[in-house]
Nucleic acid binder design. Structure first.
Lengths: 157, 157
DNA sequence: ATACATGCAAACATTTTGCTTTGGC
DNA sequence: GCCAAAGCAAAATGTTTGCATGTAT
């Protein structure tokens, strides 16, 4: 999953590389190849958990080099294009994940400390999607399944 | 579901009445019987969809009679007590629903207009909860399943 | 050369807190 | 009377926009 881009800033294309794929999708949609685009995609692709706008803006590679507003607008575009996905995880802020076409992740969140872990499970909602789509006439359906509870560490304290 | 309290402001107790049950739970937890408590519970119980803090504060019965901060603190307490539940539905603001012990609801949200509809389905995540709880050592587990898509109206436009 | 992307600053929306007063028990 | 709850006002947090400038194409 956390497939790192093997050739930063180069123009070579490795069709297996998630980062290249993402970049291609973005370019095809008309986005320009900017530093912010590259870094945002790289960060999201290599992250093992959802990231907030603040997380991204403050990341080493971007700190003091990228503006909140720029990243915000970029994330918004990428979401609209379906390249990334925005999650509502009870926090005040929005979380973003890279969206691998056809893949899906669920999360387990501690209601005390806010820790987020990705769950690796056969999501049972997958099948329901078609049915719900048909029943309600909705298109472009996707879903979000999150589990909330108290993690062992917080339970001890 | 939307069981209305049949005897507002009275002290009679109908053990079948959701509103009475909720009130009892709150009182047992030490909350005082205030106007805000009664109205907030009534609103949430009779609502057919999740409500925001703003929704509640601006409701007829409470408008100009209740302060945002008061309702906010009350909602926070009720959530901590497990009497209501807070949902993260992608909107900027938090949504609240009354939590009937043992019951669970899933939602279908239009990503364009934000409309929220409650889904009536056999939630397949119910079973996963125990497993996840065991696997990860989390306690007090619950989950939230939401479907996002474009509703027919927005699709037409 | 022409858009699109950026940066900076300011506006917004919503949540959260401090402190004094009110009112349930 | 005591302590929780209410009310008011202000702070904090995170998102969103306007506009002038820079830059990829």
């Amino acid at each position: 999953m956390a497939h790192l881009h093997p050739h930063p800033h180069s123009r070579e294309r490795d069709p297996e590389c998630l980062h290249c794929q993402a970049l291609d999708r973005a370019r095809e949609a008309g986005l320009r190849r900017t530093r912010a685009l590259e870094e945002v995609l790289r960060l999201l692709i290599s992250a093992s958990q959802p990231l907030t706008l603040a997380n991204i803006t403050e990341a080493q590679v971007l700190a003091d080099k990228a503006d909140r507003a720029t990243i915000y607008r970029l994330l918004t575009k990428l979401e609209r294009l379906g390249i990334i996905r925005r999650l509502g995880l009870h926090d005040r802020s929005a979380y973003y994940v890279y969206h691998v076409p056809g893949e899906h992740n669920d999360y387990l969140i501690c209601t005390q400390c806010g820790q987020i872990r990705r769950l690796d499970l056969d999501c049972p909602a997958e099948e329901l999607e078609k049915q719900i789509s048909k029943d309600n006439g909705y298109s472009c359906l996707y879903h979000e399944l999150s589990f909330y509870g108290v993690c062992p560490v917080c339970a001890a304290a």
